[in-house]
Simulated assay, not measured.
Amino acid sequence: MTHDPISAHTAEAIADALATPGGHLSIGYGGFTLYFGAGATLTGYDVEPIKAACLSAGLPVIDGRAVPFDVLFDLVVRGPMPAVGRPPCPPPRHALSYAPLEEIAHAMAMAGAEVRNIPGIAPGGASQSQRTSSGL
């Protein structure tokens, strides 16, 4: 008998995230957050099984564990929030506004995060030359 590493509830949340504009998995130093609807999240600490399930389902994944803590903190606390299941706010965006997931993912990739399943962003994040030219 094989053991499925994710529950039926988690699989359903991943399916909902795939159907929701901006739905994605975010991974940081404190675990993961799966965004699957406007205001709907699933959080936890067992990162690798849910990361594998999301990647295999084609869900966008942003893994910020390789980003220096102070840089990650700045992006997450001072930057805009991802617009999940709701329209983004018009620019300019700030800490209490919502931005398209691609904008958040690009900023995270430029800082060195692993970004997967988001068109236009290399799977390993931004290249070193892109990070250097951005000042991050």
Score class of each variant (00 low, 15 high):
residue 127 S to W: 11
residue 92 P to N: 05
residue 74 D to I: 06
residue 126 A to L: 07
residue 31 G to C: 05
residue 54 C to T: 14
residue 75 L to Q: 01
residue 135 G to N: 13
residue 112 G to C: 06
residue 116 R to P: 05
residue 38 A to I: 06
residue 92 P to M: 02
residue 87 P to C: 00
residue 105 A to P: 07
residue 105 A to F: 01
residue 130 Q to G: 09
residue 7 S to K: 08
residue 66 A to R: 15
residue 133 S to R: 12
residue 38 A to K: 14
residue 104 I to S: 01
residue 107 A to G: 11
residue 126 A to D: 10
residue 65 R to D: 08
residue 21 P to I: 00
residue 75 L to T: 03
residue 31 G to E: 04
residue 21 P to A: 04
residue 108 M to F: 09
residue 31 G to A: 10
residue 78 R to H: 10
residue 52 A to Y: 11
residue 8 A to E: 12
residue 20 T to N: 03
residue 108 M to S: 07
residue 28 G to H: 06
residue 35 Y to P: 01
residue 5 P to M: 10
residue 83 A to F: 03
residue 42 L to C: 04
residue 125 G to E: 09
residue 117 N to W: 04
residue 39 G to E: 03
residue 133 S to T: 14
residue 117 N to E: 06
residue 109 A to L: 07
residue 42 L to W: 10
residue 19 A to N: 15
residue 35 Y to A: 10
residue 110 M to T: 09
residue 45 Y to F: 08
residue 35 Y to C: 09
residue 106 H to D: 07
residue 44 G to L: 11
residue 64 G to H: 10
residue 113 A to S: 05
residue 26 S to D: 07
residue 99 A to D: 00
residue 19 A to M: 08
residue 120 G to D: 02
residue 47 V to E: 03
residue 53 A to D: 12
residue 63 D to P: 08
residue 48 E to A: 13
residue 61 V to Y: 04
residue 85 G to M: 06
residue 98 Y to L: 11
residue 47 V to F: 04
residue 28 G to R: 05
residue 95 A to S: 12
residue 34 L to P: 02
residue 43 T to M: 10
residue 130 Q to I: 08
residue 30 G to A: 15
residue 100 P to E: 00
residue 119 P to D: 06
residue 128 Q to D: 15
residue 25 L to G: 10
residue 89 C to P: 01
residue 105 A to H: 02
residue 59 L to M: 15
residue 76 V to G: 05
residue 102 E to W: 03
residue 96 L to T: 13
residue 33 T to R: 14
residue 7 S to Y: 09
residue 29 Y to A: 15
residue 11 A to M: 03
residue 20 T to H: 08
residue 50 I to L: 14
residue 64 G to E: 14
residue 125 G to Y: 06
residue 129 S to P: 03
residue 15 A to T: 15
residue 73 F to H: 11
residue 134 S to W: 13
residue 132 T to K: 12
residue 79 G to R: 05
residue 90 P to F: 00
residue 99 A to Q: 00
residue 31 G to I: 07
residue 47 V to G: 04
residue 99 A to Y: 00
residue 120 G to I: 01
residue 124 G to F: 11
residue 121 I to E: 02
residue 86 R to G: 04
residue 45 Y to L: 13
residue 121 I to P: 04
residue 63 D to I: 03
residue 48 E to F: 10
residue 62 I to R: 13
residue 30 G to E: 14
residue 67 V to D: 08
residue 75 L to C: 01
residue 96 L to I: 07
residue 41 T to H: 13
residue 51 K to M: 11
residue 119 P to E: 05
